[in-house]
Design a protein around this nucleic acid. Structure first.
Lengths: 204, 204
DNA sequence: GTCTATATCCAGATAGAC
DNA sequence: GTCTATCTGGATATAGAC
């Protein structure tokens, strides 16, 4: 019992530390030593628990990918109103990004370096695309929104939310060089901007 | 003279090889050996010409960043019509991304790993933001488009263009698992989609 | 389970011949 | 300018004591 408890605690410590370091630095950039330091344990223990850097990485990556899909999935209600979906989704997604601003870069970078990984995890990290599509098409039929490709609409939303987080250092430099507080405010404003922008674009 | 010619040619060879490898793998992921192979020369020559991996990298990064800004800058005409700008920009930008699909990931990844780099290059890689802003504000005043923040609009456009390229492996899996040709077509369709989507959102 | 010490490998960088 | 051979440091991973 005691052993079990200790094990869980250490494993959890490692996973949290690994998450912090991997998401910030990626698979190549992360150092096992840094993860060990972050967890307050020894480097050898990482291998004792997870065998190799890559196996440890896989745990983190899978959870991160699944988490991003979940934000979308949780906003979907098959029979619901698209505008309600948009408001919920944009709100939750931007909040998640605010708390985890490096996850998108992490995911895109690893996915583009090793596209085959997406198959590896596709059972555990899944987007409820059929549910989403059904919702959009129903709203089109009911004349609540213009005819639009659900695929393109989803990419529009995601792009508008993700870009400012991915490109934050550039945005700070280009838009707000003289007033650094502006960038924070800009990200805050985006929630309302995206919602009203999408509403305008979709209105029949 | 002969020496000079040889020098230029080799230097050019190295830069092209480095571009290919760095853009695909990033600073951490790239190997000097791979760049040498790609250039058809010896590893030691890379150091002879560029001293260190990082110095070589800086050449590539600066050009890539400037290139992305240039696509925007070239579409801007201070006195022009926003819709003309949008059409030119989206067209050129998506064409550039089609030919260089890994540049956005490259830039975002390096910028987020080392945000200080953006200052290092900000004289040579600059966005003509004042010109763009002037154009948008003029169009608003002339009632050609609704009142909108130029900053947000620019991010909207960029996000809608860049996301499908960044997330292509995910999109292929989620949208087009059964018909891989669909992804290619999807990216092709996006040009028209984005233009008409923006027009609809902006119309007064 | 957790540590210290060490093996092993590999990448960037340099020396020196041609 | 270009090559081969080599140095050096640092990273993952393992052995083995506690």
């Amino acid at each position: 019992m005691d052993k079990e408890n200790t094990k869980r605690t250490t494993e959890q410590l490692i996973l949290e530390a690994a998450r912090t370091v991997f998401i910030r630095k990626g698979l190549e950039g992360a150092r096992m030593q840094e993860i060990a330091n972050e967890a307050g344990i020894n480097k050898a223990l990482l291998h004792y628990y997870f065998r190799s850097k890559e196996k440890l990485f896989n745990h983190i990556f899978e959870k991160a990918l699944a988490g991003m899909f979940d934000v979308i999935n949780e906003s979907i209600h098959k029979e619901g109103d698209v505008f309600a979906f948009i408001e919920t989704f944009v709100d939750h997604y931007l909040s998640t990004l605010k708390e985890n601003p490096f996850i998108p870069n992490f995911i895109f970078n690893e996915i583009n370096s090793h596209p085959e990984r997406i198959h590896q995890f596709s059972d555990k990290a899944r987007l409820n695309f059929p549910g989403y599509k059904q919702m959009v098409e129903k709203n089109i039929k009911q004349n609540k929104i213009i005819a639009i490709s659900p695929e393109h609409l989803l990419i529009d939303m995601l792009g508008m939310c993700v870009f400012p987080v991915l490109g934050r250092p550039i945005i700070e430099k280009v838009f707000f060089e003289d007033h650094p507080a502006g960038a924070e405010n800009f990200l805050y404003e985006r929630k309302q901007h995206i919602i009203s922008f999408l509403k305008k674009a979709l209105q029949p």
